[in-house]
C-alpha cells in the first residue's frame, strides 16, 4: 500500500458470519457506532449445512481506517472470515437492479433501445410502463439509471453489491 495515508479508497469486503439473529445488527452497529461509511451492504445465507451467511460491504476510508474496519469485524464473535476483495486481487462485482420507467411514444422506444444496449430485460410491461431488470457492476447500473431519467424513470430498487474473487481460490 504505497497509497497516501490520507486518501480515501473504496473497498469491497466479504464477511462470512454465523447466520444467527442479530448478526446483521452487530455489523451495521459497528459501522454506525464507529463512524465508518457503508456504501452498500448485502447479506444472504450461503451455506445451509453450516448455517453461514455472507455479507458484502462496500465502504471507503483511508488505509488505516480500512485496516481498522477489518480488524473490528474480525473481532465480532459470530464472524468467521473477513476478506478485502479490493486488496486481495481481481474480483467480480455485480448488482441487480429493477428499474421502472413510465412513458409513451418515442421515449418508450428510446428506453427499450437503451435497455437493449445495456442488456437489461423488460420483466414487466404495461401500455405506458416498463420494469427493467439489469445486472452489472455499480457503474453500469448508475449509467443506465442516468439515461432513464429523462425517459420517465419513476422507481429504482437495487440489491447492492455482491462480489467474489476471480480464479480458483474460495473464501
Amino acid at each position: 500500500m504505497s497509497a497516501n495515508p490520507e486518501t480515501e479508497n473504496r473497498h469491497t469486503i466479504s464477511v462470512v458470519v454465523d447466520n444467527e439473529p442479530g448478526v446483521l445488527a452487530r455489523v451495521i452497529g459497528l459501522f454506525s457506532g464507529r463512524g465508518y461509511n457503508i456504501e452498500s451492504l448485502t447479506v444472504a445465507e450461503v451455506n445451509l449445512d453450516e448455517n453461514l451467511s455472507r455479507i458484502t460491504v462496500v465502504t471507503s476510508g483511508t488505509p488505516m481506517i480500512i485496516e481498522q474496519i477489518k480488524a473490528q469485524l474480525t473481532r465480532l464473535v459470530p464472524v468467521h472470515k473477513v476478506a478485502d476483495l479490493t486488496l486481495d486481487g481481481p474480483h467480480v462485482e455485480r448488482e441487480l437492479a429493477l428499474i421502472k420507467v413510465n412513458g409513451k411514444g418515442n421515449a418508450r422506444v428510446e428506453a427499450l433501445r437503451i435497455a437493449d444496449i445495456f442488456r437489461a430485460r423488460a420483466v414487466d410491461s404495461t401500455n405506458n410502463s416498463f420494469v427493467f431488470e439489469i445486472v452489472g457492476n455499480t457503474g453500469k447500473i448508475d449509467a443506465f439509471i442516468d439515461l432513464m431519467k429523462p425517459l420517465g424513470l419513476v422507481d429504482v430498487s437495487r440489491t447492492g453489491v455482491v462480489a467474489i474473487a476471480r480464479g480458483r481460490s474460495a473464501l
Binding site: 488505516m64 485496516e67 481498522q68 480488524a71 473490528q72 474480525t74 473481532r75
Partner: peptide
Amino acid sequence: IDPSSINK
C-alpha cells in the same frame, strides 16, 4: 491480543 488495537 486484539488486532483492532494495533494501528488504531
